[in-house]
């Protein structure tokens, strides 16, 4: 109990003093997870909409793969990305400038994108399928093109789509296995909040670990709050 209280006090102190090391870690965490979420949103939302709105051969197979992906253990994703990007891996040995190297933020972004993408796409698909088919028919009857129809349905399913993005964010801001494996927890380079918490715990610095845990929770809370406020401002009109 004492560790928890001291951790919270330490968190307040670190934030109040603007600790530069902490700021660096927080900013990298947000940059990596934010970029990964952006990538998974711009690919996952359209795929989810496509799966929810259309029928084509292979749709069930794609859906099954997506559902399986929703349960991917981050450490397995990290291992897969590690093997792909390592010097002897299929992508690593290409030595192309666009292929990120291991132990760099870009590799962490790729791993986190793979973790969050199935969640964003899968929950978007479910949200879109939840829109009344009769409403889709009404939209078509009012003269919508297929793209206009899809955008209107996405707008009607906006709460579910936002939940999919929040779920995607939650899955990556808090994961440690993948970023540890492909990032390596290198100080000033790939250290993010979760890997720093693991490190400080191993060193016995429970106050600092708790402080960063509290900051991580606060970040997740504030991000979700911001999304919900955005939802209210944008859509409750």
């Amino acid at each position: 109990m004492n560790e928890i209280l001291r951790g919270v006090a330490e968190a307040v102190r670190l934030i109040a003093t603007g600790d530069p090391a902490l700021r660096e870690i927080v900013l990298l965490s947000l940059r990596v997870s934010g970029t990964a979420l952006l990538l998974s949103t711009v690919t996952g939302v359209p795929l989810g909409a496509l799966l929810g709105l259309s029928r084509f051969s292979g749709r069930r197979l794609v859906t099954a793969v997506l559902y399986t992906g929703m349960g991917f253990p981050p450490v397995v994703v990290g291992l897969s990305v590690y093997l792909m990007l390592s010097r002897s891996g299929p992508l690593g040995q290409l030595d192309w400038p666009l292929v990120p190297t291991l132990f760099a933020p870009a590799a962490m972004v790729i791993a986190q994108s793979i973790i969050s993408f199935p969640l964003v796409a899968g929950f978007t698909m479910a949200a879109v399928m939840g829109v009344d088919p009769q409403l889709r028919r009404q939209i078509e009857s009012l003269g919508a093109t297929r793209v206009q129809n899809a955008l209107t349905v996405l707008s009607e399913a906006r709460v579910g789509v936002l939940v999919s993005i929040i779920a995607g964010f939650g899955s990556i801001i808090s994961e440690v296995g993948a970023v540890m494996m492909v990032g390596g927890n290198i100080e000033h380079r790939t250290r993010v909040l979760t890997t720093a918490i693991v490190l400080e715990t191993r060193k016995g610095n429970f106050d600092l670990a708790m402080a960063m845990g509290a900051i991580l929770l606060s970040l997740a809370f504030l991000t979700n709050l911001a999304v919900l406020l955005f939802q209210g401002r944008m859509f409750d009109r």
Binding site: Q134, R137, Q138, S141, G143, T152
Partner: peptide, 11 residues
Amino acid sequence: VTTVFQRPMLL
């Protein structure tokens, strides 16, 4: 052409 359905189906 457009249709008004039995259920209003509003956005």
